[in-house]
Design a protein around this nucleic acid. Structure first.
Lengths: 178, 178
DNA sequence: GCGAGCTAGTTTAAGTTTCAATGAGAGGCC
DNA sequence: GGCCTCTCATTGAAACTTAAACTAGCTCGC
């Protein structure tokens, strides 16, 4: 991805359109490994869940969030935030899950704009059926292949990255996207 | 994602439909952090490249692969393999990139079924324009936030995961998807 | 040299995601 | 109350992805 042009790595005060600091060779290798691993893993999980539970990984994640929420229900915005997706995307997703009978919506009593999504018994059953296979795959793809030490470090690293990207306010843009 | 039902963690000989080994609390935390970080980062990169270069991250990656290939060209299958995507997806992607004038196809002389995708000068120019902003974002989201030690470890971990998922033959399925 | 089976790549249709636009309620201010 | 603005959530169109056919060319054994 990096180092398309002349390298000139001198530290400088980063004027807006100055030559950027390209990635070092090691950083490039790590970045490529990251892209490859995440791409492969995501595709693998998607394919398995599509086959075994009839839904993509993201949708499965939504069901899990609901299952863990008190009363198995969550406000749409809350669900969107915890799943790290847009409200629009969630709307479409819940529409589909509702069509499958796994989730239903109910009006929020305290705020008439609001909607609660809640997991049906059918949805919970689907989750229970799919969970073992999913966990098993996650384990085989990641945890069985890493030492405890590596797992701990991966956790730290991922938290650092997520913290840096977390939209601060509600939908506030990150400063360094200009 | 995990631990939906009773826990019974005793090691056992893993009969096909036995109670699976659920994730420990730490593993769950790490897994969630992983999902969150990768989701956020991928979305962030997609949005920035869509805005600055008019294409999603994956498409940008294809241009990069081509730019680095000898003669700026690559067989379709080869490109699909190095980008970790299906041939079908690549077909669609190249069709779109071709429509933008950034890539063109040429028949492969040695194998009449084959196609070479090659990067046009326009495509290269787009890449050169987009690269600094992209690298800068990657840096700010990941490398600037991690110590050298962490970067090295992340690289190791990602390689382990990728190795475990790499389709072994051409399109051969992984054994543990049953 | 020809038929079975493989490989390269594309196509179709169905499903998913994005972006921008919309409607409808909440909240503040005068 | 009336008005302005913000938030919650949905919608529709366009772009993207996927799985499953499908075409065409290679290759190997007989």
């Amino acid at each position: 991805m990096e180092r398309m042009s002349t390298k000139k790595n001198a530290a400088r005060t980063e004027a807006p359109s100055a030559e950027p600091r390209w990635l070092t060779d090691e950083e490039q290798r790590v970045w490529r490994a990251y892209i490859h691993a995440t791409t492969l893993l995501d595709d693998t999980l998607d394919r398995q869940l599509q086959r075994d539970a009839g839904m993509p990984h993201m949708y499965y994640g939504l069901l899990v969030q609901l299952a863990q929420a008190p009363g198995r229900k969550l406000r749409m915005t809350e669900l969107a935030r915890s799943a790290k997706i847009t409200r629009s995307r969630l709307s479409h997703a819940v529409a589909r899950l509702e069509k499958n009978g796994w989730v239903r919506r109910q009006d929020c009593p305290s705020d008439k704009r609001g909607q609660n999504a809640f997991l049906t018994d059918e949805g919970f059953a689907v989750l229970q059926e799919a969970a073992p296979g999913h966990v098993s795959l996650v384990r085989k793809a990641m945890f069985d292949r890493l030492s405890e030490e590596q797992v701990r470090r991966l956790g730290e690293i991922m938290c650092v990255i997520a913290d840096g990207l977390e939209p601060t306010g509600t939908g506030a843009d990150l400063p360094w996207l200009r």
